[in-house]
Write a protein that binds this DNA or RNA. Sequence first.
DNA 1: ACGCCATATACACTTGTGCTTATATACGCC
DNA 2: GGCGTATATAAGCACAAGTGTATATGGCGT
Lengths: 100, 100
Amino acid sequence: MDVFEAVAEPNRRHLLSLLAERDRTAGELVDSLPTLTQPAVSRHLRVLREVGLVEVRPDGQRRIYALKPDGLQRIDDWITPYRRFWRNHLDALQQHLENR
Amino acid sequence: MDVFEAVAEPNRRHLLSLLAERDRTAGELVDSLPTLTQPAVSRHLRVLREVGLVEVRPDGQRRIYALKPDGLQRIDDWITPYRRFWRNHLDALQQHLENR
DNA sequence: ACGCCATATACACTTGTGCTTATATACGCC
DNA sequence: GGCGTATATAAGCACAAGTGTATATGGCGT
């Protein structure tokens, strides 16, 4: 599984948004997704780990998850060449509005 | 299927990159993905259409596909809040290098 | 009208993903 | 050591995604 497939899953995006606020233990993350069971969340965290989007550090019997900056940058790099398209589009729209 | 799942597929990302260069007919796109059959490419194009990443205009019996700017912007909007993470990370690295 | 070319859809099949239940691992505390 | 807690893995299942073959649709040229 690669980074793109990893973020294609809504629950995983939710986990990322939670970790963007602050680091959290696996247990906290499980509690934050009440529609899923503990093993389901654990598997999602494993995926996020394997694609390098999060990292874990042990804290006694807890595991503290943290966002890893590098992973999403690969998506950002991919999207960069496309960005000019909607930039151009917006510019054209703006000019149209100004000129009428 | 949503935008994230749409771009999670490598062949679809390939199609998008081809359309970023210039508009192309369905046939040209089929020829550009020699590992896939014509119906397979057609299905991928359908997905890209349905999530608003591309648009089609008829040209006789051909269909000309073009990139649609709005679609990818939704992913860009999503990634924006995370961007500061690797910005901060890079800044810290840069400072570290400058101060040594 | 007929046949050809370009594209889309139907159907069947395979594989992968996400899920739940059950179980293993491992740490902390008594 | 034994027990409860925190987390990960295993096994099995349902469903969706991707693909190929076969077929339909529809415009074009003669």
